[in-house]
Amino acid sequence: MRDTRPPRVAAWLFDRLTSGPNRESLGGDLIERYASGRSVSWYWRQVVNAILGGAARDVRDHKLLALRAVTAGFASMWMFWALASIPLRLVWVLSNGGLYLGGHWMTLDYSWMHYRGYLALLLIVAGSAGSGWIVGRLHREHQAAMVLAFLAAVVLAGTAQLVIQVRLLGWPIRPMIHSAPTIIVLFVVTPISVLVGGLWTDYGTRTTGARQNATF
């Protein structure tokens, strides 16, 4: 017999990312129609549409707020990168001959150079999640929409960066092998980190969530 409960991940995303005065009723309607025989793919389509449609409406209604969210997000990301470059540079210097400091040579084994990539990845995840968190924290009223607006801006900026790189340097001989890490970082790791950080802000309040119905 078919399970009448909607797909868990989709339902969770709906609860986390939709907004608007009728989100509870819309959620109930989707459950009702799914239970009456609609497919899993139908439910997913409806959830994605509700999330994107709601976010687009919020951004349209609060353009200045969205601009502030994108600015705050990029500013915090930039500041984080300025700070993160210090340990990365330190590892590079220490494992490339060392540093004479306070009468001592401070060095790291050259094998640390291999770990720099992992360290950079860790810092990207932390920096992206941190900037998403700041955007979410600053815009609690329209949190999901503002985090998604920042996320869209990050993806756009990543695309622009990639286009400029390709224009200047051209594709390498084996593009996928050489470009895969960059593409994964730009379009998978960073956006997911921004989203997780941004939605982490009020995890507690939403999961215990009060009904948000409103009538007009």
């Binding site: 509870e24 109930g28 309607d29 459950i31 009702e32 009904r211 009538t215 007009f216």
Partner: peptide
Amino acid sequence: SSRLGEPTAERGGRAKT
């Protein structure tokens, strides 16, 4: 105009509008 109905179990405890 709209009005809120009562939440029902079949709808995961969510009310109709």
